[in-house]
Design a protein around this nucleic acid. Structure first.
Length: 466
RNA sequence: GGGGGCGUAGCUCAGCAGGUUAGAGCGCUGCCCUGUCACGGCAGAGGUCGCGGGUUCGAGUCCCGUCGCUCCCGCCA
């Protein structure tokens, strides 16, 4: 929980806030009089105004309790009731769970109160918005129903923690990039042609012609290499028209992409990625590790560097030797194999991460660079964490003729991507990079079973609302 | 796209060798309860059992179709 919020009690409200527009007499800006619930322990004896939602109402013969919840916690508010209930008593009796209310009262310590040992003696109540009496979802409702009523679902404190962690993750990523001289890109999401396979593209009408939603910033971050940017990153939406029905796919998700110039091999890319992730997990462990343990019952373990590395061929040998069924040569690992490999690496190396390298050219994108001594293999890698694929990366082919040859060989329509191929005609540095699934990282970090849990508003083959 | 599972009250579920008026917990409504804190007590409302068709004297229960949801595989991040 953040502790740095400034108190906004009434005692501080008389002075004009910094930067307020004081010249407009009819629209005088003033501080909100709101006190956050996490601030109440420091306000004993003071009259404060708390604004939030009715978490529970216990309306008894002689005393009424309102449990009020805001984004920082919950507190009990109390009001005595005489033989003849007051107007205020009647107003409290008329409250419903999840109504939005403004409660003003005096903060009083009371050992009897299990919720923080204090309560608010109610002086006044403003019902900002009365909730309808029966809510469409409960805590134990099915995921799909919770998605229908996502804003109610998200009111729960553990859901909020997901997005506080996500915010910290992105902040830590940028800390790293900024310290290492990366430039941030915002590449277009509307494209005139496919950037990779084409099969998974969403088509949109674009005036009098066709356009597509970007399924990756791949081509544009490579263009930035030819532009001499050196090191770039982007955090942004990507769109995939896959009819995928699993717990870890969606049709729109947040992709984290990096690309680096002047590398010697894909090894340089992995070396940056593992340091970057160690920084991110370290930051999250420090700021939210305890809350994650308490709320989700899982530990954020800061990885040591370097991460274990195995080639795809070695991985299959390891799995076979351990008695697992493994896909044939020439194929990628299937999800059960990925989980088994992560388990083996954890057991033998005590590490949650694993780079799998040297994928066959046949299962990788045409722009992946081939090994000089074995052109059937690419200078590529996947990164597994706790059994799930977080990343695909590679050194890219930056030599024009070879790139064109590889595209043709793979049946890519060269004409439609000529603009991309042109990036490599006027001096392109050796480069590589990777794409990284932010929602997958969050899902595994918080021990959630579905990306929908960690996506603000999920988009899938059958869901376009809310 | 292939395979498995599931659709019964606002929510979570039970019911099924097919047999009168379909149940529970939570929630909701009303009454009662001097401090609750998963408050407690009493009473009550609420369901054409996803939809359509079939078998049968009789279908929530069996069969077929259909729609929706879900998980796994494929695809990938």
């Amino acid at each position: 929980m953040p502790r740095s919020r400034r108190s906004r009690s009434s005692s501080a409200s008389r002075a004009d806030p910094p930067g307020a527009i004081v010249a407009a007499p009819l629209a005088r800006v003033r501080y909100m009089l709101r006190t956050l619930i996490e601030e109440l322990p420091g306000k004993l004896g003071e009259q404060v105004t708390v604004r939030g939602w009715v978490n529970a109402l216990r309306d008894q013969k002689r005393v009424q309790f309102v449990i009020v919840r805001d984004e920082t916690g919950m507190a009990q508010a109390v009001l005595g009731k005489d033989e003849q209930p007051s107007e205020l008593n009647e107003a409290i009796s008329a409250l419903t769970a999840e109504s939005a209310v403004t409660l003003t009262g005096t903060v009083v310590g009371d050992e009897r109160v299990k919720l923080g040992g204090l309560e608010l003696k109610i002086d006044s109540l403003l019902v900002d918005s009365l909730a309808e009496p029966e809510l469409p979802i409960a805590e134990d409702s099915a995921l799909d129903k919770r998605m229908d009523w996502r804003y109610l679902d998200l009111r729960r404190p553990d859901r909020r923690l997901i997005f506080e962690v996500q915010t910290r993750i992105e902040q830590a990523m940028r800390e790293f990039w900024r310290a290492e001289g990366f430039i941030e890109l915002h590449s277009p999401k509307l494209m005139g042609s496919a950037s990779e396979s084409g099969a998974e593209l969403f088509h949109v009408d674009y005036f009098d012609r066709d356009a597509y939603l970007a399924q990756s910033p791949q081509f544009y971050k490579q263009m930035a290499m030819s532009a001499g940017f050196g090191k770039v990153f982007e955090i942004g939406p990507v769109f995939r028209a896959n009819p995928s029905f699993t717990s870890r796919h969606d049709t729109e998700f947040t992709s984290v992409d990096m690309e680096l110039s002047w590398i010697d091999s894909h090894e340089d890319v992995m070396a940056v990625e593992e340091r970057w992730l160690a920084h991110v997990l370290g930051a999250v462990a420090e700021s939210h590790g305890e809350a994650i343990r308490e709320t989700f019952g899982t530990e954020v373990i800061v990885p040591t560097v370097p991460f274990p590395r195995v080639t795809l061929a070695e991985a299959k040998e390891m799995l076979s030797a351990a008695g697992h069924d493994v896909p044939d040569a020439g194929h990628d690992l299937d999800p059960p194999s990925e989980r088994a490999l992560s388990a083996l690496i954890a057991e033998r190396h005590g590490h949650e991460f694993c780079f799998v390298t040297d994928y066959p050219a046949a299962v990788r994108a045409f722009y992946h660079m081939r090994h000089e001594d074995d052109p059937a293999l690419t200078k590529s890698f996947d990164l597994l964490w706790r059994g799930i694929e977080l990343t695909t990366g590679a050194q890219r082919e930056h030599r024009y003729e070879r790139l064109v040859a590889q595209a043709s060989e793979r049946g890519v329509e060269v004409d439609s991507i000529q603009y991309y191929l042109d990036f490599f005609r006027y001096g392109a540095p050796p480069h590589g990079g990777f794409g990284f699934g932010l929602t997958r990282l969050l899902m595994m970090m918080l021990a959630q079973e579905n990306v929908r849990e960690v996506t603000f508003l999920y988009r899938g083959p059958h869901r376009l609302t809310p």
